[in-house]
Amino acid sequence: MADKKLSKKDAFYRAHAARLRLPEEKLRPLYDDELDGKKGPNEPFEVPDKMDVFFKYSYGGQSRFFREILHNERLMGSKCPKCGKVYCPPRSACPLCYEATEWVELPGTGKIEAFTIQHYSTSAFVTKVPFLVAYVRLDGSDFLMMTNIEMDDVGKAHHGMPVKVVYRQEKSGAMTDIYFEPLNV
């Protein structure tokens, strides 16, 4: 019966904070006017909400790409036995020949094809700016891979700059387990 002692305001913020897994102070005082009865009967009524779904996601035929990074710090591509093209990110079938591909190890080096500096980003990344997003032409691959380049001075990145893969110490089995840095650091 402890809930009965909470004010309307405290009950509202506590309930939403628990449901959204956000600290109460992130929500306060955005809804105070509503809770204090200051809104007219026909003004928009806003409430906190979120949508989420948990997964136990399978990488399917691309599993080995992430497993080799996690366990062996190896960068793998997939090669079409018919046309010889090598894909990274990998594909278990060649979309040009409709043939099953074979795994090949890549040297993990390449050159920047195009890059941009993010000065603003999504709520998941907005505190990490500025950072580099680039298309890298990997040695041994026929296609471009989008990736992050990490370097002390992002202003020194340039078209054609040689880069190499770096494996993070703490891995999570996701694409963020790798990034690239200038080859000559």
């Binding site: 990488y59 691309q62 990110p89 195009a114 890059f115 941009t116 993010q118 603003y120 980003s121 999504t122 998941a124 990344f125 990490k128 950072f131 997003v133 680039a134 298309y135 891979m145 989008m146 990736t147 992050n148 996701a174 694409m175 963020t176």
Partner: peptide, 19 residues
């Protein structure tokens, strides 16, 4: 799998093309 985790945005995709 490959693009979302790296913090790119719709703008950076088009920026790469313009660059």
């Amino acid at each position: 799998t490959y693009d979302n985790p790296i913090g790119r945005t719709a703008a950076s995709g088009f920026a790469l093309a313009v660059i």
